[in-house]
Design a binder for these strands. Structure first.
Lengths: 210, 210
DNA sequence: ATAAGTTTGTGCCCTTTGTTACCGTAGTTT
DNA sequence: AAACTACGGTAACAAAGGGCACAAACTTAT
C-alpha cells in the first residue's frame, strides 16, 4: 500500500503524514458496483481513492437519481468530508464505478492532521475546490444544456473514467444517471449512432468518436 | 465595526483573531444592486458579510444566468475562497441584494489564519459545508422540480432574505434568476395570484401566503 | 427446445416550457 | 398633448422531453 500512497499523494503529503496514514488508515479493495456510502448514513471515516473510480449521486424524496460527478485516483469526496466535519448524515450516495482501492481515514485523525500538517490542509482545500467546481459544472450542465449534449458529455466522461471505450451500461442505467427515461436515452443514442459517433450493442455501447 | 464583528462572528472567532480582522480587514458599505465580484476576475480578498444579503449567480458562454444561492449575515462565499486558494479566476458573479456591510480580508491573511486560529479553520470549514449544501439544493431544485415549485421556492427565499414580503422585482428580473423567459414567469405568477398566494402589482409583488 | 425475462426500437400522444407577436397601461420625456 | 419606453397580460404556436404500448431481439432458466 505504501507505494500506491506515495505514487498517488506524494506531491501533497509529507513523509510523517504518509506514515500516519499507513498506520491509521484502513485499506479496502472494493469491486465495481458496490455502494460504499449511502444517503442518510452517518460517516465515521473518509475515503482516499488510490485507484479506480467512484460515482457520486444525489437522490430526491421520490427516489429519482442524478449523477453529480465521478471521483478519480487521488481524489476524495468533499461532500462526505463536509458531512464528517459537521457530524451530519450523508447527503449523497457513492458507488464504485470500477474495481477500486481505497484508504479509509477516521474522522478524528482528519481533524487532527488539519492542524498538524500543511500538506493535509492543502489537500483538503484543493479537494473542496475541485468538488465545488465539479458541482458548478453539473449545475451548468443541467441548467444550460439540453439532453443531447448532456448525454454526449456523460458518455465522454464515462469513457475517460473507466478508460474503456466500450460502455457497459444498459440504456436504463444511463437514464437513471441523467435523470430521464429509458425511452429518451434510446432515442438519443440512436441519433448518435446515425451520426456515426458510436455503435450500439446489447448491454454495451462502442464509442467511436464523440 | 467591532461591535458588528463581535455580534456576528463571536461564536466562531477568538479575540486575537477579531483584533487581526479589525486591523487587516477593510470595511465596505455597498448599496443594493452593485456587482461586487464578477466572472473572470482575479480575487485578492474575500468578503465576510456583516449585514445585508448577496446573491451569487452563474453565467454560461451565451450570457444566460442562473441564481445559485443567497449569502446572509455571517456568511462568506466559499466559491470565492476556493478561487482565492487556487489562485484562479472567479467562477461566479456576486451582486448585493440589499444594502450591505462587508469586511474584505486579504487572501494572504486568510491562509495565515488558517494555521494560526482554530476558530478561523472551523469557520472556513463550516462555510464550505454550507455552500456545498446550498449548491446541492440548487441542483435538486433544477434537476427534480418543475418551474412552478422553483418559482415558489425563489419567492419564499427572496422574502426571507430581504425581510420584506413585497418583492421589488420585475418579471424579467425573476426570469433571469430562474433562467427562463419573462412570459413564462408572468404566466406562473398569474396562476399563483389566482390561487390567492400573492397579489401582482407593477414593479412589485405582494406575497401573501406561499 | 421452450418459456420467461431482459433489453432495445419505435410510434403516438401529452405536458411542460420556450418563442413570437401583439396589446394595454403606466410612467417619462419633449 | 404626443411620443416614447418599460412592464405586464395573453393567445397561438413550436420544441423538448416524458409516458405508454407493443414488437423484436436476445439471454437465461427449465
Amino acid at each position: 500500500m505504501e507505494e500506491e500512497l506515495l505514487g498517488t499523494f506524494s506531491n501533497y503529503f509529507e513523509q510523517p503524514l504518509i506514515d500516519e496514514i499507513l498506520e491509521e488508515g484502513k485499506l479496502m479493495e472494493v469491486p465495481a458496483g458496490e455502494t460504499i456510502m449511502d444517503i442518510g448514513q452517518y460517516i465515521r471515516s473518509i475515503p482516499l481513492l488510490l485507484s479506480g473510480a467512484i460515482k457520486v449521486l444525489r437522490e430526491d424524496d421520490e427516489g429519482d437519481e442524478l449523477l453529480l460527478y465521478y471521483l478519480a485516483q487521488g481524489e476524495t469526496c468533499s461532500v462526505t468530508m463536509a458531512c464528517c466535519m459537521g457530524h451530519t448524515k450523508s447527503e449523497i450516495r457513492a458507488i464504485t464505478e470500477t474495481d477500486t482501492k481505497i484508504v479509509m481515514v477516521p474522522v478524528q485523525k482528519m481533524e487532527e492532521w488539519m492542524a498538524k500538517y500543511k500538506g493535509w490542509r492543502n489537500y483538503v482545500f484543493d479537494s473542496y475546490q475541485n468538488r465545488l467546481n465539479e458541482l458548478l459544472q453539473t449545475v451548468d450542465s443541467i441548467a444550460f444544456k439540453n439532453l443531447d449534449q448532456r448525454l454526449v458529455d456523460y458518455l465522454k466522461k464515462k469513457v475517460e473514467v473507466t478508460n474503456d471505450n466500450r460502455i457497459r451500461s444498459t440504456h436504463q442505467e444511463i437514464a437513471y444517471d441523467l435523470h430521464t427515461s429509458r425511452v429518451v436515452v434510446s432515442r438519443l443514442l440512436k441519433k448518435l449512432e446515425k451520426m456515426k459517433k458510436l455503435v450500439l450493442h446489447r448491454n454495451y455501447i462502442h464509442v467511436v468518436d464523440l
